[in-house]
Amino acid sequence: MAAAGEAANEKARPRPGGRPRDAALDEAIILATRERLVRDGYSLMTIGDIAAEAKVSRPTLYRRWRTKFELVSWATSPAKRSARPSCSASSGSTPSNRGSRWSRTS
């Protein structure tokens, strides 16, 4: 009887979807970001340029990093690079709550 309960619990737990992320793609994106940042500067570089240089699609980039700022932060921060990027959408950070502790209250 306990085995039936365990089987039901296994079915109830959500499984991670999709295939695992390719670390080689992450590295190619990071390197392309660094190269574009040096060559073009932050304001002139685009996600499309980075994607083309890394030979990935724009959705591949946006699955890992939501914004150009997040991508550049990962590419330039050794502390962040020690952890693999995950889907940024699940981080809980939204434009309305990002930096809220720094906002003034008058």
Rank of each mutant, 00 (worst) to 15 (best):
M1F: 10
A4V: 14
E6T: 08
E6W: 07
E6G: 07
E6R: 12
E6I: 08
A7Q: 12
A7R: 10
A8C: 10
N9F: 12
E10W: 11
K11N: 06
K11Q: 15
A12F: 07
A12T: 08
R13P: 03
R13Y: 11
P16R: 15
G17A: 15
G17E: 14
G17W: 09
G18F: 06
G18M: 06
R19C: 03
R19P: 06
P20K: 12
R21M: 13
R21S: 11
D22V: 06
D22S: 09
A23V: 13
A24G: 14
D26T: 12
A28H: 04
A28C: 02
I29C: 03
I29T: 02
I29F: 04
I29W: 01
I29Q: 01
I29M: 08
I29P: 02
I30S: 01
I30F: 13
L31G: 02
L31Q: 08
L31M: 05
A32N: 07
T33K: 00
T33M: 03
R34H: 07
E35K: 13
R36Q: 12
R36P: 01
D40A: 11
G41P: 05
G41W: 04
G41L: 02
Y42R: 10
Y42N: 01
Y42V: 04
S43N: 04
S43D: 12
S43V: 09
M45S: 03
T46R: 11
T46Q: 07
T46F: 05
I47H: 02
I47S: 03
G48A: 10
D49L: 13
I50A: 01
A51Y: 03
A52E: 13
A52I: 01
A52T: 10
E53Y: 10
E53M: 15
A54G: 08
A54R: 04
K55R: 14
K55S: 15
V56Y: 00
S57E: 10
S57W: 06
R58T: 13
T60K: 05
T60V: 07
Y62S: 07
Y62L: 15
R66S: 12
T67C: 03
F69L: 10
L71E: 00
V72W: 06
S73R: 10
W74F: 15
W74R: 08
W74L: 05
A75Y: 06
A75V: 02
T76Y: 02
S77I: 04
A79F: 03
A79W: 04
A79T: 07
K80D: 09
K80E: 11
K80R: 14
R81C: 01
P85I: 02
P85D: 02
C87K: 11
S88E: 07
S91N: 06
G92F: 05
G92S: 04
S93H: 13
S93V: 15
T94W: 01
T94G: 00
P95D: 00
P95H: 01
S96K: 07
S96N: 07
N97D: 03
N97F: 01
G99Q: 07
G99R: 03
G99W: 04
S100V: 09
R101T: 12
W102N: 09
W102C: 08
W102I: 00
S103G: 05
T105M: 14
S106P: 14
S106A: 14
S106T: 11
